[in-house]
Design a protein around this nucleic acid. Structure first.
Lengths: 360, 360
DNA sequence: AGGAAAATTTGAACCGGTTCAACAAGTATG
DNA sequence: CATACTTGTTGAACCGGTTCAAATTTTCCT
């Protein structure tokens, strides 16, 4: 009797041979069972059962089909950030929901380390990339370009040359600073996100100017524009670079409040930074908004639940995710470029400065 | 001159032809550049550049390589749950970290709807599956078996027949109930997770017995064992099934506290349920732990931050994720079965009942 | 220069399916 | 009964690479 290999898992060709039909027919049995005669279909199915074939391997289909039905979400940060960072979490939620609705999967791709990045993105089996660009966009973009797959960059400021979905960072930052200025604040400090992969602390104008982290730069630009418009010297507001972690934010605040005439208003470039700043302020017996007003950026859900609730620049996070997915799926070759509006949400963390509060 | 197709993206074979070498050599140029003579290598690279070939397509490699370098995480719930549910988030964080460390990707696979499930799992291009079984395990397991890929079920109680990593639910639940009993509580209510896809509210013994949601069942079993051991009739503690959402938890509590002699102790099968219960109690002016003591389950990070902090059964969540990934990656064909220990963490949400508090 | 060892390159097989033009058998139409 | 449709099946080409034994070229030694 013919020996049936059980060592290597059975293939469609095996099934076809055993059932005495062509590979094409066997394929049809699994993909378009309707078009094959019942008698034949049963024979093939029985053959499959006999040799332990449990349906076509997607790896095979992939090649001819072309489409993978999955989109890759790539970041330079550790994969875990997708689940821990409040902003990324909300963004991923909407990306996941939109993918879900379209029946396609999500692949998380990490590019934390240089060489690994190249490989991970080069070998990702996906139909397109959504790039989380907050922390270093170039490598992600370069790899996407190389793969020649549709992609869209998130949080990559106004780089006009690549497909992206972004918000109006300058307008958002202006609204935040204008709000504080209009409340009467005159002493500002800016807690910024990164300007490059390394370094934190007081940022020089050159460093700000030269950064490729466009969102970070634009938000600083917006803050300064608004200050200037309200007759405040932008250079009086120091810009401290942080890594959105406790250590660097605290270090910045230590330095800020060690100076004479410390600020009454803090512009935080993200809600996470604002949360940490509020922790620091509380620990140093500085009341918010009594002693210090603070405005965040992003509008993550947690921002409504702090005490006091955080005044912040609300991004349409869910909309961004949704559009990103659509941009990949609907890709018709043209470059997608969208800039969404943000909205200042005034909550409890901002108030007139103390010296003004009593003289309205 | 020979027309170089620019319509369809170039293939390795095209490069080889243009460079005048064999496909094998061209392949080597990209994968093991070391073994090909420099002159040839440059010629191939130049040819590639000329016709716009940017490196091998992973879809091709896939077939011969076999390995995808990605593991799939499958669930019956919406994909977004991975990012919103506190427990799943922590679990995913550690899964992501472990994958990261091994340079492999994570694919999120949703199986919310029946037919879609089959297809999504059938067509997922991954090396193995991690199954989130809290909400319906069978379909996930069936599909994994069919794909004949290594897989491991999480949160699927003590089903001995499949590879799984789980915790000792009975011991954990016993510890929770014992703790409350030892504090002197005599009136209990149990807020359970689902027993099946549908239904909520007071659960009959039959429903509990027949469920295939093993974790849910085991926790009930553990609770009841401990009650019995402390001389309390297990049947005096009603079991309310909830969907871990505000609506069903509130409905359960409405019913529980409408009864005469309401409980002084609540056993919640998850921290999320406990959080919601605490909200309800606060709204109904019932003090925790003054009027009511409550114990959660899971030990998500948020449990330490509620007011009062929640006494709960701490799962080694990070360890579970890590082992799940290892189980897939190290798969040597043998079935992995691990049961991890849990630990009762006593915090502020439990105290002796009021009638006992003054008579120690 | 001759011969063996080392370094490269080739070519074909293979990975596991899908697709489609062409063909065959069966059936309704004129 | 010939003709035109249907319906079902086949076989070969193709998807885009990788792999490896065998063939070929180089390099090294004496």
């Amino acid at each position: 009797m013919a020996s049936i290999k059980t060592e290597k898992s059975a293939t469609l060709a095996d099934v076809a041979r055993v059932a005495g039909v062509s590979k094409g027919t066997a394929s049809n049995v699994f993909n378009r069972p309707g078009i094959v005669r019942e008698e034949v279909r049963e024979r093939v199915l029985k053959a499959a059962a006999t040799i332990g074939y449990h349906g076509p391997d997607p790896k095979g289909r992939l090649l001819s089909a072309g489409k993978v039905n999955a989109i890759g979400v790539a970041t330079m940060q550790p994969l875990a950030t997708f689940f821990t960072d409040p902003y990324e979490r909300v963004l991923m939620t909407s990306i996941a929901e939109e993918c879900d609705a379209n029946g396609i999967g999500v692949s998380l791709i990490c590019a934390a380390s240089g060489e690994q990045l190249a490989w991970n993105m080069r070998s990702a089996v996906v139909d397109g990339f959504i790039l989380f660009c907050l922390h270093g966009a170039e490598p992600l973009i370069a790899q996407s370009l190389q793969r020649q797959l549709p992609f869209v960059a998130l949080d990559h400021g106004d780089d006009k040359s690549i497909p992206s979905i972004d918000i109006d960072n300058i307008a958002g930052a202006r609204a935040a600073a204008a709000h504080l200025a209009e409340l009467g604040h005159r002493q500002f400090a800016i807690l910024a996100m990164e300007f490059s992969e390394d370094g934190f602390g007081l940022a020089t104008p050159e460093r700000i100017e030269e950064t490729t982290y466009l969102d970070t730069r634009d938000r600083v630009t917006g803050y300064r524009q608004a200050l200037k418009e309200h007759g405040i010297d932008p250079n009086s507001a120091p810009v401290f670079e942080t890594w959105s972690d406790r250590e660097t934010v605290y270090a910045a605040l230590d330095e800020i409040y060690a100076a004479p005439s410390p600020p009454t208003a803090i512009l935080a470039q993200s809600d996470v930074i604002a949360f940490l700043a509020m922790d620091w302020l509380r620990q140093h017996a500085l009341a918010v908004p009594g002693d210090v007003s603070i405005v965040g950026f992003d509008g993550v859900p947690e921002s409504a639940k702090t005490k006091p609730p955080l005044t912040t620049v609300q991004q349409p996070i869910a909309e961004i995710g949704r559009r990103a997915v659509r941009a990949i799926l609907d890709n018709r070759g043209e470059t997608v470029r969208e800039t969404l509006d943000v909205e200042l949400v005034v909550r409890g963390s901002t108030a007139p400065p103390r010296d003004r509060a009593t003289t309205p």
